[in-house]
Simulated scan of single mutants.
Amino acid sequence: MAKYTAADVKALRERTGSGMMDCKKALDEAEGDVDKAIELLRVKGLKGVAKRSGRTTTNGLVAAKVDGRHAYLIELDCETDFVAKNERFIELAEQILTAVAEVGASDEQAALGAPVEGKNVEDLITDVSSIIGEKIVLRRVANLEGERFAVYLHRTNPDLPPQVGVVVAYTGDDSETAHSIAQHIAFADPKYLTREEVPADQVENERRIAEETSRNEGKPEKAIPRIVEGRVNGFFKTIVLPDQEYARDHKLSIAQVLKDAGLTVSAFVRYRVGN
Rank of each mutant, 00 (worst) to 15 (best):
1 M>C: 06
1 M>I: 11
2 A>G: 01
3 K>T: 08
5 T>Y: 07
8 D>P: 07
9 V>N: 10
10 K>S: 13
10 K>V: 04
14 E>Y: 01
19 G>M: 05
21 M>V: 14
21 M>N: 12
22 D>F: 02
22 D>G: 07
24 K>D: 10
26 A>D: 02
28 D>G: 04
28 D>V: 08
28 D>K: 10
29 E>P: 06
30 A>F: 05
34 V>N: 06
35 D>I: 00
39 E>Q: 14
43 V>I: 15
45 G>W: 09
47 K>G: 11
48 G>P: 01
49 V>A: 12
50 A>Y: 13
52 R>H: 10
56 T>L: 13
62 V>Q: 05
63 A>H: 02
66 V>T: 11
70 H>F: 14
71 A>Y: 10
72 Y>Q: 09
73 L>S: 10
73 L>D: 09
73 L>I: 10
73 L>H: 09
76 L>D: 09
76 L>K: 14
77 D>P: 04
77 D>W: 04
78 C>D: 12
78 C>H: 14
84 A>P: 11
84 A>S: 12
84 A>G: 13
86 N>V: 10
87 E>M: 10
88 R>M: 12
94 E>V: 00
95 Q>K: 15
96 I>K: 04
99 A>F: 05
103 V>W: 03
104 G>L: 01
111 A>Q: 02
113 G>N: 09
119 K>L: 05
124 L>R: 12
126 T>I: 13
126 T>V: 14
127 D>R: 09
128 V>R: 00
128 V>A: 00
128 V>G: 00
131 I>F: 01
131 I>S: 10
133 G>H: 04
137 V>R: 00
139 R>V: 00
142 A>V: 00
143 N>L: 02
146 G>S: 07
146 G>V: 05
147 E>P: 04
148 R>W: 11
152 Y>K: 06
153 L>S: 04
156 T>L: 14
160 L>C: 09
160 L>I: 07
161 P>F: 03
162 P>H: 11
165 G>L: 03
165 G>H: 08
166 V>Q: 11
172 G>W: 02
177 T>D: 05
178 A>D: 00
179 H>S: 13
179 H>K: 14
179 H>D: 07
180 S>D: 15
181 I>A: 00
181 I>W: 04
184 H>C: 00
187 F>R: 00
188 A>R: 05
190 P>N: 03
191 K>E: 14
193 L>S: 05
195 R>Y: 04
198 V>L: 08
200 A>H: 12
201 D>N: 11
202 Q>Y: 12
204 E>N: 15
206 E>G: 06
206 E>Q: 14
207 R>G: 01
207 R>Q: 09
209 I>W: 08
210 A>S: 10
215 R>F: 03
218 G>E: 03
218 G>R: 11
219 K>T: 02
224 I>D: 07
226 R>K: 15
229 E>N: 14
230 G>S: 07
231 R>D: 05
232 V>H: 14
233 N>C: 01
236 F>V: 01
236 F>P: 01
236 F>L: 01
237 K>R: 15
239 I>C: 09
241 L>P: 03
242 P>Y: 03
242 P>G: 08
242 P>F: 06
244 Q>D: 08
245 E>R: 15
245 E>V: 02
251 K>Y: 08
252 L>G: 02
254 I>D: 03
255 A>G: 08
259 K>V: 03
263 L>D: 04
264 T>F: 07
264 T>P: 01
265 V>I: 12
267 A>N: 14
267 A>I: 06
270 R>K: 13
271 Y>S: 09
273 V>N: 04
